[in-house]
Amino acid sequence: MSIILDHVTYTYSEKTAYEIKALDDVSLSIKDGEFIGIIGHTGSGKSTLVQHLNGLLRATSGTIYYNGQDIYDKDFNLKNMRTKVGMVFQYPEHQLFETTVFEDVKYGPKNQGLSDKEATNRAYDALADVNFPDEYFDQSPFELSGGQKRRAAIAGVLAMEPEVLILDEPTAGLDPKGQRDILNLIRRMHESSGRTIILVSHSMEDVAEYVDRIIVMDEGRVFLDGAPDYVFSHTDLLEEKGLAVPQVTYLMEELRAKGIPIEGQPTTLEMAEKEILRLHKAGVF
């Protein structure tokens, strides 16, 4: 299982005055089971990139291989692939529409051609995966709290059992506890199912804490690509592009500039805490 982008370019409004290259010669390889964070300032091409991964947008040039097959080949079943690459859009609760939560979650698998019984089983499993309380199964999705709606919407995508799950800013607009709950849920899904997860985020702190690999987009190009400690060692470059590093990473760099012998590149609260406590024990603080 893999997704390979080979020199993918996408141009909006080609050959008009408004022509904009939203993706500019992007080559990437996404392996099975990776947990990837995509960051970039607004308009950097993040959303355009993920919309190519499940064939919602078609590259102007270049191609994409899904499990080795060219998705633009006329014999390729794009509709089938879209159920394998599940997409949770920004504010997914705006797409809830059925009369009950349960019916809403069943809609996807039913649309895949599964029997009612199979779709029901899928819906139970998906709602359990997102820890959705069963007393609300028959409630209208519109009467739920913000966090619950978002869970229901994510369950609707999970019910199609995608191999790859793409989430475009899944925590936007939620309160801090709601954000943490959703991110922990995504982490658990990654750990238990091993499915590939691609998380588009504006929060440097969140990607530092949760993902294994960060892809930084800028002006439609891949600007940096690597593990969090590698990406967040480029503070100046990231700031030039309207981005930042996690607050604790700034802190550790500033301590290092004062001559404190910081080891490594701490990017999460836990890592910074551990490093400061180590130095404390060593008598530095």
């Binding site: 309160d175 801090p176 506890k177 709601g178 943490r180 702190e205 996690p246 607050q247 604790v248 802190l251 609260l269 910074a272 805490e273 400061i276 406590l277 404390h280 603080f285």
Partner: peptide, 20 residues
């Protein structure tokens, strides 16, 4: 109350709890 504090405040709080 389902809220949080800035990352630096939380780090300071934890370091204090650890005895700094």
């Amino acid at each position: 109350h389902r809220l949080t504090v800035p990352q630096i405040t939380l780090l300071a709080h934890r370091l204090k709890a650890a005895g700094l």
